Amino acid sequence: MEAIGETSFPDDSGSQSLCPDPHVGARVAPGWSYLHKPIIAMVMGSLMSAAGAILFLLQSSGVTEAPRSVSSACLSIGLMFVVVGLVWVPILKEKQRRKGYSQGA
């Protein structure tokens, strides 16, 4: 019987990992693989902006009684995500360019 405070862990042979290798099974072109996060941010932002626009149109036509602050918040947060993604893309491209120069020299 084990004493209190002692734990036994199975032998960690390294076969299992909490962070799988991102390159295994990737079907994305290598040139675009570093842009997946800003693209996700832009897509989510555009979806949230579209939801805000739809809410605003439904409120103005009288279909729903949701407060206007909800549609305004969706629009502003969605546009913020789109802008963050749009600014993030050139930053990552410059980072990749500098990384290429440092590895090539």
Rank of each mutant, 00 (worst) to 15 (best):
S61D: 09
L58F: 08
G85H: 02
G85I: 13
E6Y: 13
M44C: 10
P30I: 06
A105P: 07
L57C: 01
K99A: 07
L47S: 04
K37P: 00
G85R: 04
M80T: 12
L57E: 10
S13K: 11
G25E: 08
S72H: 02
I39P: 00
V70E: 11
L47Y: 05
S8V: 15
M1A: 12
I39S: 04
A73M: 13
G45I: 02
S71M: 13
A29S: 10
F56R: 05
A50E: 01
P90I: 08
L57R: 06
R27H: 06
H36M: 11
Q59T: 11
S102Q: 12
A50V: 04
L92S: 00
I54S: 07
W32L: 04
V83P: 05
P67F: 15
S71D: 13
W32R: 01
S46E: 05
A51P: 02
E94H: 07
S76F: 08
S46I: 03
Q59I: 09
Q103L: 07
M1S: 05
Y101I: 02
F56I: 03
L47Q: 04
V24K: 11
A41E: 04
K37M: 00
I91F: 15
A53R: 14
I77P: 07
I54F: 04
A3D: 12
I77S: 14
L75M: 08
A53I: 10
L55S: 06
V84H: 00
